[in-house]
Amino acid sequence: MNPLEIGSMVKARYKTGAYIGRIKEERGKFYLVEVLAVLKHPQQGDLHNPKETEGVFFHERRALAHHEKANIPKSAVSAFTDDIPDYPASLRTALQQLREDLNGQPASAYRDLALSNMDSLEKDYFG
């Protein structure tokens, strides 16, 4: 496998989301990746206590913004060779996929809070 270089198009996993981006810099064990599209919207809630609502701070987790740069461990970055979708369209698709996943889960306090966050995020993202 060819090593990734500055300017390479990549798929990058960041926390619970996944993105398409371009490597801007190499920083030791990390790449600085510029976000160009969203593949998977981050899960809602507390990363350390997934799907819990009691006794935790339930975070609203936003997707990384278009052209936002993030330090991502090299182990979470791989080459991307497909077409890069438009950022707003990819964000809308990722948000809809997460909503469908949540709606497919049994009713729970987590699901209700996460769907409420999704409604708020959708209004914020798209007006």
Rank of each mutant, 00 (worst) to 15 (best):
P88E: 06
V38G: 07
L113P: 00
R13L: 07
R111M: 01
S108R: 08
I23T: 08
S120V: 03
I6A: 03
G127W: 07
Y125Q: 07
N71F: 13
R27L: 14
L47W: 07
M1W: 06
Q105T: 02
E100M: 04
F58K: 06
M9G: 04
N49P: 00
T16S: 15
A37M: 11
Q43V: 02
R62G: 01
G45S: 05
L32M: 13
G104E: 02
D101P: 00
P50C: 09
R27M: 14
H41S: 06
Y19D: 01
L98G: 00
F57Q: 01
S8F: 09
F80K: 05
R62D: 15
N71R: 11
G17H: 08
P3I: 09
A63Q: 03
Q44N: 11
V56W: 03
N2M: 12
A18I: 05
L36F: 08
R99Q: 13
I84A: 06
L113G: 02
A79T: 12
L47P: 07
L39Q: 13
H66L: 13
N49K: 13
A37D: 08
E60V: 06
S90E: 12
G17P: 08
G17R: 08
V35A: 11
P3M: 13
M118Q: 10
A76I: 01
A70Q: 14
H41W: 04
Q43S: 12
P88I: 06
K11M: 11
K11H: 11
M1S: 14
K69S: 10
A18R: 11
Y31C: 13
L32Q: 12
I20Y: 08
L121Q: 07
D86I: 06
A94Y: 05
K123T: 13
Q97D: 14
E122K: 15
G7F: 06
A107Y: 00
S108C: 07
L39F: 02
L91F: 09
R61N: 15
S90P: 08
V10I: 09
V10Y: 04
A114D: 02
G28P: 03
